[in-house]
Amino acid sequence: MLKTFIFGLILGVAAAAAALFFAPVVDQVRETSIIKVLPNGGNSETFHVNIPMDRVMSGSQSNSTQYPENLDWPTDPQFAGVSAELFKIRNERDTVIGVASRIAAKDEQHGTIIEWVLHIPARGSMYMSLQPQMLEGGIRRGELRSGSREFSNIAGIVSERWVADVSGEEGSPAGRIELVSSSVAFGDGS
């Protein structure tokens, strides 16, 4: 019987080791990426944020734009020209695939700063800097500065524009913020 117990002991250790090693502790849900291949071999991908339903936070020292209403936004004078927002981000199928932050600041030292960080759990993060000037068609352009995992080792340009919803359907958003990234890889991704 002692031999049986020892056999069970070894079996238990082996089973636990195998389960911990092979069974995934984390399995992130992945949405199929919708990526267009550009004529020069680069990739283009479109993301959007439906307003107001995808807004998680909107912080500024203007009470009219704060969300949620009971937000405790810092009143320090250095944040007077800062607007910071947190969103859920969607793909072209209108499925939520990640979260994103947008910082817009009128900095006394460095002028206007507009930036996004997109965090897509199953893929990685992207860091985008935009020019403050609005171009024809209400488009703001910028560059893809950095990224992680799937988005590491890529560089490219990005654009941001506001697209108003004209469907008039009940429950439809007021519009969406559309982000288009166009990128090329310059090294091995990891």
């Binding site: 019987m1 049986t4 069970g8 070894i10 238990g12 911990l20």
Partner: peptide
């Protein structure tokens, strides 16, 4: 023997 095997298995998992 079956009980010994089960007890051993549980002890093995806990040991690991």
């Amino acid at each position: 023997y079956l009980l010994a095997l089960i007890a051993g298995f549980v002890a093995g998992v806990m040991l690991f």
